[in-house]
Amino acid sequence: MSVSQVALEFPLLRGRRIRTRIGWVLSILAFVLVAAPLLDILILVTARGISAISPELFLAPTNGISGGLLNAIVGTFVLSGGALIIGVPIGVGGGIYLAEFGTGSFGAVVRFLSDVLTGIPSIVLGYFSYITMVIWLGWQFSALAGAITLALMVVPYMARLTELSLRQVPLSLREAGYALGAPDRKVIFRIVLPPALPGVLTGALLALAISVGETAPLIYTAGWSNYVWNGKLTHEPIGYLTYVIWSFINQPFASAHALAFAAAFLVVLVVLVINVTARTLLFARTA
C-alpha cells in the first residue's frame, strides 16, 4: 500500500500531512525573514561604504560634516584597546578564580551576577560612568572614562569565557601538577592556561568586537572630537566610528551620509571578521 493510498483511506492523515507541510514552510519562512534583513544590512553597508572609501578617509580628520575619519579610527583604536588593557586582565583573573576555586557560594554568586551584568543596558553603565568619572572625578568627556566604561562591559564576558575554556582542560593535568608540588600560580600559568589560551584569546577578540561596535555609553563618557587624539587620557574628548554613524546619518548632507556609511562599513567589517573567525575556530575546536 503506497503512501497516497494510505492518505486516501485515512482522510485524517491527509490533513496532518498538509498541516506538517505548512508547518515546515512557515519555519523556513521564519528563517528567511531573519536572514533577509541581515543580508540587506550587509549589502547596504558594503555597497554604500565602499563607494565612500578614499585615501582621504584614512588620512584626514572629520571637518564639520565632511573630511575623513582619521580621528574616529584612531579614537576607536584607543578606546577599544584601552578597554581590553583594563578589562582583559580583570576578566581573565575572575575567570581563573571561577574555574579553579569558584566551587563555593562566593563563586556561584560571582558567576550569577556576571551573567546578570551582561544583561544590564550599556546606557545604564554609561550613565554610571558619566556621574562618577565625568562629573564627580571631573575627568570630563575623555578617553579614559570611555575605555573604563567599555571595560565594565567586557569584564563579565571575559570572565565567563575564560572559565569555559579553563574547564575544558582535564582535571588530571592539574592533579599531576599539584602532585609534583607545584604551587597554585605555577599550576595555573604553566599547566592549565597554555592549552586554554586559544579560547581565552577568542574571548578577547569577541570582547574587542563588542567595544568597537558600542555607542550609547561612549556618548556619555568619551564625547566627540574633530581632532586626532593627542595622547591625553582625561579632560579631552575623543572621537570614535560609531558616533559618526549615529550622528552624521541625521544630517541632510550627502557628504555626512557618505561618512556615516563608510564608518558603518569599517565597524561591520571588524565585527564580522572577528566573529566569523572566532566562531568557526570555536566550532572547529569543540566539534
Binding site: 553597508v45 561596535g213 554613524i245 566573529n275 568557526t280
Partner: peptide
C-alpha cells in the same frame, strides 16, 4: 546557525542606520 548568531553581533547603531535608510 552562524547566520542567526551574526544577527546578534551586528552593532545596535548599524541596525539604526539600516532602519533609517531602509
Amino acid at each position: 546557525s552562524l547566520i542567526v548568531e551574526l544577527l546578534a553581533v551586528v552593532p545596535s547603531v548599524v541596525y539604526g542606520l539600516w532602519g533609517v535608510a531602509v
